[in-house]
């Protein structure tokens, strides 16, 4: 529907919308995150939900203790190689549609611990990440900004057509392989279905 016509109609007290807009409006204002924290970023995430920053204003105050009831995974903190399989498993247990915010330097790249033998160099190696936030740790405002970015992303999703999101495409996976503990590290080292391999990006 034409935006100008909608504005014109609303001036006359007529509210017009599409089912898609209504549906996405409902979805974006009831994103329930998973109660799940890995390190110091989790403290900042908790602060974001409390009275001072009040994530409840965005409809995301109900942190769910079960992945079965959660829509959003906030990967808040360093993902060690020993923890990575559990993070992927939790993601797999969440029902579609599901979203991931990688919060902080560690979750997006390994951060200050990147050179450690025990640290995963970014959770996007195994699961698709919707919003990355840098920071060590990011301030609550940054997490709120990431959350609003995610809301914009949700409201821009089309329910039909080729550009519809993953959860509406039957043939696309909603679960991703859980890495296994190998002799020298995780096997495989990344999931090439999800990860933008920098070597391949450079090769074009």
């Amino acid at each position: 529907m034409d935006q100008d016509l909608k504005t014109e109609l609303s001036k006359h007290g007529i509210f017009a919308t599409s089912f898609e807009e209504l549906y996405n409006w409902g979805r974006k204002n009831s994103v329930w995150p998973l109660t799940f924290g890995l390190a110091c970023c989790a403290i900042e995430m908790i602060a974001t939900t409390m009275a001072r920053y009040d994530l409840a204003r965005f409809g995301a105050e109900v942190f769910r203790p079960s992945p079965r009831q959660a829509d959003l995974m906030i990967v808040s903190g360093t993902v060690t190689k020993k923890m990575a399989p559990q993070v992927v498993r939790l993601y797999n247990q969440m029902p579609e549609p599901k979203y991931v915010i990688a919060m902080g330097a560690c979750a997006i790249s390994g951060g200050p611990f990147r050179d450690g033998y025990n640290v995963l160099k970014g959770i996007d190696r195994y699961i698709p990440v919707d919003v990355h936030i840098p920071g060590c740790p990011p301030r609550p405002e940054a997490l709120i900004h990431a959350f609003m970015t995610l809301q914009d992303k949700i409201s821009a999703q089309h329910l039909t057509g080729e550009s519809r999101p993953r959860h509406l495409k039957q043939d696309l996976p909603s679960e991703f392989p859980v890495p296994e503990f190998g002799e020298h590290g995780l096997e495989p080292q990344q999931n090439d279905e999800v990860f933008r391999n920098p070597l391949k990006v450079l090769q074009g």
Binding site: Y117, K121, L199
Partner: peptide, 11 residues
């Protein structure tokens, strides 16, 4: 560490 552990650095 395994040589292809840090792909970004390798790139």
């Amino acid at each position: 560490p395994p040589p292809d552990d840090d792909l970004e650095l390798l790139a």
